[in-house]
């Protein structure tokens, strides 16, 4: 498996990145860890005449935690997320999810930015970021803009990011309440058969808010507002769980693949979500 030839660019700053993007348009792609892109290039399923490696661009690798929000640079790796003690304490769902992504070697290289930006429906971080109501910072020739994770995904590999833009950071409010990232997969290194991200706030004995997003059950991550709403104000009892699951099932649209047929995926999605809610609620 040998990729086609390409020109390699390793700019030192964002200006340099944008200059290459500007010059080559569609022919240029930015690469973070490369663990999604390089296999595609080796299989000659991605044609990238100009490859822009972001590793030397400053300011993309920080994790900044403030009183009410968290900012994660696009080049922060899954391993960085796992190893960051403060992040694990303020937003433990990130670590729980990151540990379920790929394998150790891939987590050293794979970045949060790459994971959310490339639009692969199998990736875990997009659904997670939707659950956490994150905002993506995009930088382009026109300057900087923000797009909510919940508005970012249009179709498989199609996102709100323009070809000439770079996703530089993810900002999210400090998560509140209980959490769970529940994922069923065939083995380590596999994408999800179904995965659910749940963040839930307990207000007295009832649910004060709940955010729910699902992974690999549609051609985009699925933020199920209705599923969250079904829990709101309830004691997260069996009836509430059933209506949350049923609301979620209305929002997903899985397709058959080697992991199984649609009926199976829908069933597992329901089971996984129920377990995620129960676990999150127990931690709330």
């Amino acid at each position: 498996m040998i990729p086609a030839a390409f020109e390699y660019h390793r700019p030192k700053d964002m200006e340099g990145v944008l200059a290459v993007l500007n010059e080559h348009g569609d022919d240029a792609r930015v690469m973070a860890g490369g663990h999604s892109l390089i296999p595609m290039m080796k299989l000659r399923m991605a044609d990238v005449p100009h490859l822009i490696d972001l590793q030397d661009v400053g300011g993309l690798s920080g994790i900044d935690i403030s009183a009410d929000s968290i900012r994660i640079g696009a080049m922060v790796t899954q391993a960085d997320i796992i190893d960051h003690a403060e992040l694990a304490s303020v937003a433990p769902i990130l670590r729980e999810a990151a540990l379920q992504i790929a394998d150790p070697q891939v987590r050293y290289m794979g970045t949060v930015g790459g994971n959310v930006a490339n639009g692969d429906p199998g990736n875990d971080m997009p659904g997670l970021m939707q659950c956490l109501d994150a905002t993506f910072t995009l930088v382009g020739a026109e300057g900087e803009r923000s797009v909510a994770a919940r508005d970012f995904y249009e179709a498989a590999y199609m996102t709100a990011r323009e070809d000439e833009e770079v996703l530089t950071a993810i900002t999210l409010p400090r998560p509140q309440g209980g959490y769970a990232y529940e994922k069923q997969k065939r083995k380590i290194g596999d994408y999800a058969t179904a995965a659910a991200a749940v963040q839930i706030v307990k207000d007295g004995n009832v649910c004060g808010s709940a955010a729910i997003a699902m992974t690999n059950l549609s051609d985009v991550p699925v933020f199920s507002e209705a599923a969250g709403a079904a829990l709101f104000g309830t004691s997260v009892d069996d009836t509430a769980l059933k209506s949350a699951v049923s609301a979620m099932l209305d929002d997903i649209d899985p397709t058959e693949d080697n992991r199984g047929p649609v009926a199976f995926k829908r069933h597992v999605a329901g089971v996984i979500l129920r377990r995620a809610i129960e676990r999150a609620w127990s931690r709330a």
């Binding site: 069923q184 065939r186 058969t193 992991r259 199984g260 047929p261 009926a263 199976f264 069933h267 597992v268």
Partner: peptide
Amino acid sequence: HDHWRIWKTAN
């Protein structure tokens, strides 16, 4: 006996 086939049996 991957997950979905086991599930199918149960189903």
